[in-house]
């Protein structure tokens, strides 16, 4: 395969009650629960998308990151072929545990469809696709830790095989109030070269 250079057009990190966009802190709260933090971030950036409140924590986390990186990408006139390539460690375990609790007591057995639907990690890709009308390639992977080698390779394959014009990559880990999101948009043009070292440096900041 011909190796064309690819570039990181934008990136953001969400962790410890703080959102960092292109290296600069743009929103920060004193320590609080994720439900509170995510709601205030949503309000702060005037996202105006009531479905947000129906999402589980993993989807909220992924949604917030995608919102910041894709808000300038949406266009009425042209379809946006941005693929979604996401991964994490805990899959949807936070919601899995919540759902399991709803069926573990025979005296109080009320499985919730609205919880069950989030017991799949790729639901967050569906949420982002709906919000930004991305009828595009999407896939969700599980790794021990952020795997920049795989992510970079797969993103390049999607771009070089013309399966996508851009790729929104994301590490979105959430389990029981512990969370970290690192999202970045990869394309064939840009200033910051899409390199494994760069990804690692920005991820670890």
């Amino acid at each position: 395969m011909v190796e064309n250079k690819t570039y990181i057009q934008s990136f953001c990190t969400i962790q410890n009650n703080e959102i960092i966009l292109e290296g600069a802190s743009i929103f920060k709260l004193e320590p609080t629960l994720f439900s509170d933090f995510s709601k205030k971030a949503y309000q702060n950036f005037e996202m105006n998308y009531p479905k947000f409140f129906k999402m589980d924590s993993l989807s909220k986390l992924a949604f917030l990151g995608a919102e910041l990186l894709l808000k300038n990408e949406n266009s009425e006139s042209k379809e946006n072929n941005t693929a979604l390539l996401f991964a994490n460690n805990s899959s949807s375990l936070d919601t899995d545990v919540k759902y399991q609790n709803s069926i573990s007591d025979p005296e109080n057995y009320f499985p919730s469809p609205a919880v069950f639907v989030y017991t799949l990690p790729n639901i967050c890709l569906g949420e982002i696709s709906i919000r930004h009308q991305l009828k595009s390639e999407n896939s969700f992977f599980i790794f021990e830790t952020f795997n920049p080698v795989f992510m970079a390779n797969y993103a390049k394959i999607l771009l070089n095989s013309n399966k996508a014009e851009k790729v929104l990559c994301g590490w979105v880990e959430y389990y029981d109030e512990e969370y970290k999101a690192f999202l970045y948009l990869v394309a064939k043009e840009g200033n910051l070269e899409h390199k494994i070292e760069t990804l690692l440096t920005e991820y670890n900041k």
């Binding site: 639907v117 709906i130 595009s136």
Partner: peptide, 11 residues
């Protein structure tokens, strides 16, 4: 191959 989202509904 192709693997494309509906961008319509989660369930």
């Amino acid at each position: 191959d192709g693997s494309i989202n509906d961008a319509n509904h989660i369930s």
